[in-house]
Design a protein around this nucleic acid. Sequence first.
DNA 1: CTGAAAGCGCTTACAG
DNA 2: CTGAAAGCGCTTACAG
Lengths: 339, 339
Amino acid sequence: MREVTLKQIAENLGISITTVSKALKNYSDVSKSTKERVKEEAKRLNYKPNVFAVNLRTKESKTVGLIIPEVVHHFFSSVVNGIIEQAEKKGYLVIILQSNESYKLEKKQIDLLIRKRVDGVMMSLANKSIDIAHLKELQSHDIPLVMFDKISKMVNCSKIIINDRKAAYEATKHLIDSGCKKIAHFRGALQPQNSIDRFLGYKKALEDHGLPYDSSLVYLCENVDYEDGRRAALQLLKDKKDVDGIFAITDMAATGAIAVFNEKGIKVPDDISIMGFSNWFLSQAITPSLSTVDQPGFEMGKKSFKLLYKEMKAKKKGVPFEPKTVVLDTYVIKRNSTK
Amino acid sequence: MREVTLKQIAENLGISITTVSKALKNYSDVSKSTKERVKEEAKRLNYKPNVFAVNLRTKESKTVGLIIPEVVHHFFSSVVNGIIEQAEKKGYLVIILQSNESYKLEKKQIDLLIRKRVDGVMMSLANKSIDIAHLKELQSHDIPLVMFDKISKMVNCSKIIINDRKAAYEATKHLIDSGCKKIAHFRGALQPQNSIDRFLGYKKALEDHGLPYDSSLVYLCENVDYEDGRRAALQLLKDKKDVDGIFAITDMAATGAIAVFNEKGIKVPDDISIMGFSNWFLSQAITPSLSTVDQPGFEMGKKSFKLLYKEMKAKKKGVPFEPKTVVLDTYVIKRNSTK
DNA sequence: CTGAAAGCGCTTACAG
DNA sequence: CTGAAAGCGCTTACAG
């Protein structure tokens, strides 16, 4: 099937390409009757504008890029969902790339998106990204950028985040309020800001409530996953620390711990209370169901695109745009892994 | 920052645009020294070809579309992962769209991808899609199509599937082999082929092993999710059917059932064995861990792109391409929810 | 080995 | 109200 062009419509109707183009775009300087004839013919031929040509002329692709550390991940897939739903409403398509938490790959993906001339980029930083040269490069091409969840304070762009420290504080406080006296923390890698912030929130909550902070109760979960949670829980048992509560950095790590306790016949929450973080689907499906902190992924995705859209629109109009930082609310969800 | 063009390089070097273009693409009819000069200057200026112009000339976008029912879904996100990893290797970008299991939306997404002139499309059919006019439309534009998991037999295109009937047969057989005598089935909606096939596999396994098929032991889980599994399990208990095994259409439904039994003090697998389907991450994290059938999402994504790539290449060369159907292996994974 | 020229299919400033 | 023309930035068949 030969693709239909403006030229073909023009020839069929015996008018110029210019007029056809303007008629289809409802320019005011085209007569009503001509518009009707053109639109009818376009419909009849099932005309679809050649986006390649439109892109070249308008210097816009109506496409945005999204870089996330991992696709197979409840939180990020929720973000993706929020983004593509919102983008669709505004007629934008979304190209998704993965960084696999690698700095090198993230750099490569940014470069791909620059080459592709996307109209904007949304991203959550890879754990191993320290340098931000690639983001500066992106911005030097005048491509609007929005960061979410894992951000860099060094980059001047819009950001959508939660208050990790506060959220972790409240999670820990929930354990304290329910009677825990000796609370361990399964923390994430040393690098990422949100791992640091959650740790600090935990520490602060202890201090504010008269519980001594003990660094030997902090276990490292490098990958914040199920296996890490299992390992940390087994180590905790070996250490015989007599802990009565755990605040885990993610639901996955918390789930690993619960699995270990279930196997060993240790009762959750009677013997030990467990608090997760994120409110992944998982947390309501395990036994006992997991108390956690809700992290609004879908909302974060939606807001990310909305902000990006605003910036793209401002850029198009040549209006200056002031980057914004939006902090989304989180809240503790009590289930059966805490008293 | 003004974008660098071939013209600029040509002017800087005092040669023609043609030669610059050819030098950068390593045409054999350009002198070595010119190539070197051009490449050096391109690098110095950080030249990036304008893809919009390249697309227009080559009529290729190096972009493919992907339509899935839901992004937030372990299986589909695994497929997405396989696809974008493979696409990246070949220099393709992936646009992801969601159908939300709706026929109308699926149609719209197909239309978007046609307009966008993607080089190819991969998709898993929405549950509510019966009509295939939109897929015919896609093919009439000569855009290669690969379907995976949920396919339509009416469309002549490459397909990547599993043998649902066989997989369900083996899952049921596993229950029988472990001693179950009265096995219920939590089935999916009546429409989708894979829901039908899994039901048929269940039925066939009973018949082949001398167990009577009893339609009152088949419970409908319209959305094949956690809530459906809970509902079905509660109904099953109410019905007092004295069942000693359940084959659930998905891990989610199985997980809902396990949660109900855990709450009611019914021992899994001692009182009742449960078999899931898909091997989502979830299934190893719950207590007891869930026996299931592994459904290779990542592999399916990889293969989907590979086949699509072959077809796109054939099309470009003008070589005829014969659609293939690939059936991926599945296997039973025994965990603690069965004896 | 180099380059002038046509053309991909649009959009839009401008002339009439 | 209509249309000729320029131009977006490439690629490539062709001439020299």
